[in-house]
Design a protein around this nucleic acid. Structure first.
Length: 276
DNA sequence: AGTTGGACCTGACTGC
DNA sequence: TGCAGTCAGGTCCAAC
């Protein structure tokens, strides 16, 4: 699943590859990919002829800053943003692509079609509802012990559910919720409002360090993951996972088998011995 | 306002 | 061999 580290890896690569490029063509191959727009022509009109001035990220979303337009790419579960030469045959799950003025294409490929691409005639992110509703970036100072102290007492939900709530903090999904809970030594079932001061501090530190390490390793391409970076390559963090998809394998800290429990319609992986 | 569960979607896998 | 059923999870929506 593309989460913050995967989106950030793609952002960095795209930033060095397509900055300054002009969009010379817009092809929408599946209408539901631009579901926030009424018509494909409206979407294309906002991109056509414009130049990429910045490549950003907010939570799990990759954001293209054009002159006068902001393009928000939600990768969903299986979304990929890949650079390829214009002549290359298309993957059958290609949903949309942009032709660039250097003869290359930016392809949006998405097997399960949960992803979407939206364009807004606005360059100020704070005025794009899509982005404004997100909680703080976990790697920014705003995501702090003080923030948890202020918000968690009101949250009765399980800490894993709160970590994945994009309004609480942006960019964390299943993989990193499992990894962060593990690193913080917190049982995924713990109610958010029962965390002690020390546990909140551990949670903030764990979130930042897990996400930084995952970015450093180019994100996670786990067993049945479709994640690839902008060059079509796998990430490397799957080799360093401690909990996610390690059911039955020994905990790297204590040797106890990693367990998996139902969690709000999903599964949570954790070490019954190290996480309390 | 916060919380929960269902729906969406497709390919891989399981079991009969 | 074939086919129905299950699972995976990001996000939205309805209901409490």
């Amino acid at each position: 699943m593309p989460e913050l580290p995967e989106a950030e890896t793609i952002r960095r690569q795209l930033s060095s590859e397509i900055m300054g490029r002009r969009i010379t063509g817009v092809q929408v191959l599946r209408a539901s990919t631009i579901r926030r727009h009424r018509r494909a022509e409206e979407f294309a009109g906002l991109l056509m002829g414009r130049t990429v001035q910045a490549v950003g990220r907010r939570g799990k979303a990759v954001v293209l800053g054009l002159d006068g337009t902001t393009v928000v790419v939600h990768l969903g579960m299986t979304g990929q943003l890949v650079i390829a030469p214009a002549g290359e045959p298309l993957d059958r799950h290609t949903r949309l692509y942009l032709d660039l003025d250097d003869g290359r294409r930016l392809l949006f490929i998405d097997q399960r079609t949960f992803g979407d691409v939206a364009a807004y005639p606005e360059t100020d992110w704070r005025r794009i509802p899509d982005l404004a509703r997100y909680g703080p970036e976990p790697l920014r100072p705003a995501f702090s012990l003080a923030y948890l102290r202020q918000t968690l007492p009101r949250r009765r939900a399980k800490i894993q559910a709160v970590l994945m709530d994009q309004h609480f903090v942006a960019g964390i999904g299943k993989i990193y919720a499992d990894e962060i809970s593990y690193a913080a030594g917190l049982h995924p079932d713990r109610r958010a409002n029962t965390l002690s001061e020390a546990e909140m501090r551990r949670l903030v530190r764990a979130a930042k360090s897990v996400l930084r390490r995952a970015i450093h390793h180019g994100g996670t391409s786990a067993a049945d993951e479709k994640y690839v970076d902008a060059y079509g390559n796998n990430g490397g963090f799957q080799l360093l996972l401690n909990a996610y998809q390690r059911t039955g394998e020994p905990c790297r800290r204590c040797g106890e088998p990693i367990a998996r429990i139902p969690m709000n319609g999903r599964g949570a992986h954790y070490c019954p011995c190290c996480q309390r």
